[in-house]
Write a protein that binds this DNA or RNA. Structure first.
Length: 503
DNA sequence: CGATTTTGACCCGCGC
DNA sequence: GCGCGGGTCAAAATCG
């Protein structure tokens, strides 16, 4: 009669033991003790009259029932006490796990900082070597360098006309089609086009003024004696720009913005609108949107700052990517300006007109001209530009793979996030989504030797766009600093998720 | 009626 | 020091 209860009891014990064995030493003793009660009971019966065992009297039956009740109560007490003990132990384990997790996070941060420092030092050395090599041979580089740092030592002033040609070609390549709706960037990170330009007239001056001392890491560059001066000149907040073909007033980046100003920038008849994030009253993030002077369909959005509040899925992705890019800017600030070229005023004009930013001509203008992504400084603002429009380089050299085609349709959605992971980041998601991408070695050399690195998605079909974006992403993510920055963003994301913050 | 946009004025940094 | 230009402020206008 007590047998079924006993079986349940043991099964419960077995279940508990699977999870927290140590705490059941007490429990196990109890379990072993209980059968002894029954054994004594039966022994008692056997000792006095075995016939009564098979045929129990009413008195014996009552006694058996009482003992059974006592046994059930005892079991319940044991269960309750064991459950309490188990909960207590689980709490202890949770505490320990939390402590271990915090320790791991600390170690991770520390390692990441050390890695960044190490990489930056290495990058400085490599860039110095590469600079020497470039000065000897102006041929194409085989590596994409997103290094951002002192530009002082780069002396290639003959590169200007080349850049100008590239821009003009790019401009010609951007032919139109109608898109009337918002271009939606599901990426969660926002980039804005604050292109950097190279002004040969300002180069010498800028050699002394262009230093990438960034807010976060305060990294400095030191490739030459001149850089000592540069290091002491702080730069303003890092910016991330995105160029997209979009007929809407602004592109939908998942955030909520409030317009607080509008200006007609010099050199561009299109007004520049200033927005600030309204998701939080204290959010410091701002952006300005401007259309390209040469191609009104190109929308240039520049983001500045970091959100200090939870974001929606799409906004998080965009913000994370932006943050990663900004971190890359900061982390690479100490590296040399590999591939930095200087151009004449004409090229500067071409560049600025191409980007439609109408920058101050007096501002220092530096340009990394690798295809699709641009790292630059404008008015002391380190800026990384992702050009999601067409890329002249590919088209001019080989049209078979990059055919200029219709722009994004109204339904175009540049969703860099994989469907399964809403908060996926620029790099990981793109790499996963577009594995068969055209690498930057497309032209026979892995990467152009230009300084600007432009992401171009405007190429005709979305397929080509995807390939181009993927290629650009690949190049971007090939930069360890960018990776580490992404890792930091991912860590931040994970932390936010763990903390229950909304994403 | 609150939120958002518009728009002229103002501030500030930079170059001359 | 002055002028230019980018960026921001704030009152008025507009919108939902």
């Amino acid at each position: 009669m007590s047998r079924p209860a006993n079986l349940n009891f043991n099964s419960i014990e077995a279940t508990f033991n699977m999870e927290t064995r140590p705490m059941f030493s007490f429990f196990e003793n109890v379990v072993e003790e209980e059968p002894q009660i029954k054994i004594n009971h039966f022994h008692h019966d056997n000792d006095h009259d075995q016939t009564l065992v098979s045929k129990t009297s009413p008195l014996q039956e009552m006694k058996s029932i009482e003992e059974e009740d006592l046994t059930k109560d005892y079991k319940q007490d044991v269960l309750v006490s064991s459950a309490k003990a188990e909960m207590g132990q689980v709490r202890e384990e949770n505490k320990k796990l939390k402590h271990e997790l915090s320790t791991v996070l600390k170690d991770y941060k520390s390692l990441q900082l050390h890695f960044n420092d190490f990489f930056q030092q290495e990058e400085v050395e490599k860039s110095a070597q590469k600079l020497d090599h470039d000065q000897e041979d102006d041929g194409g580089n085989e590596l994409i360098s997103l290094s951002l740092g002192t530009f002082s030592s780069y002396k290639h002033k003959n590169d200007g006309p080349k850049k100008e040609d590239c821009f003009r070609k790019n401009k010609q390549a951007t032919d139109d089609e109608n898109d009337d709706q918002e271009l939606k960037l599901g990426l969660g990170c926002e980039f804005d086009p604050t292109p950097t330009r190279v002004d040969s007239n300002n180069v010498k001056k800028d050699e002394k003024t262009q230093t990438m001392e960034l807010p976060v890491h305060g990294l400095k560059t030191d490739r030459s004696d001149d850089n000592e001066l540069l290091d002491q000149i702080p730069l303003k907040k890092a910016r991330v720009s995105v160029k997209v073909v979009c007929d809407a007033q602004t592109m939908n980046d998942g955030c909520q913005w409030r317009k607080y100003g509008q200006k007609i920038a010099k050199g561009n008849p299109c007004p520049r609108a200033y927005y600030r994030c309204t998701l939080s009253s204290s959010c410091p993030v701002r952006k300005h949107v401007q259309r390209c002077a040469d191609d009104r369909s190109v929308l240039i959005t520049t983001y500045e700052g970091t959100h200090n509040h939870p974001l929606s899925v799409s906004a998080t992705a965009m913000a994370s990517t932006t943050s990663a890019a900004a971190s890359m800017l900061k982390s690479t600030s100490s590296t040399s300006q590999v591939g930095l070229t200087t151009t004449g005023a004409a090229s500067t004009t071409a560049f600025s007109s191409h980007h439609g930013m109408g920058y101050n001509s007096r501002a220092p203008q530096y340009s990394f001209y690798l295809p699709k992504t641009t790292i630059s400084t404008y008015q002391s603002h380190p800026t990384i530009t992702l050009d999601l429009t067409s890329n002249p380089h590919f088209n001019t050299s080989n049209s078979s793979n990059f055919i200029m085609s219709p722009r994004f349709s109204s339904s175009t959605c540049l969703n860099f996030s994989s469907p399964s992971s809403s908060s996926s980041l620029f790099c990981s998601s793109i790499e996963s989504n577009y594995k068969n991408t055209i690498p930057f070695s497309y032209h026979g050399k892995q990467t152009p030797s230009h300084d600007n690195f432009t992401i171009n998605s405007r190429s005709a079909s979305q397929h080509h766009s995807s390939d181009t974006i993927a290629a650009a992403t690949k190049a971007l993510t090939s930069n360890p600093s960018f990776r580490s920055a992404l890792a930091a963003s991912i860590t931040s994301l994970v932390r936010n998720v763990g903390g229950g913050s909304k994403i």
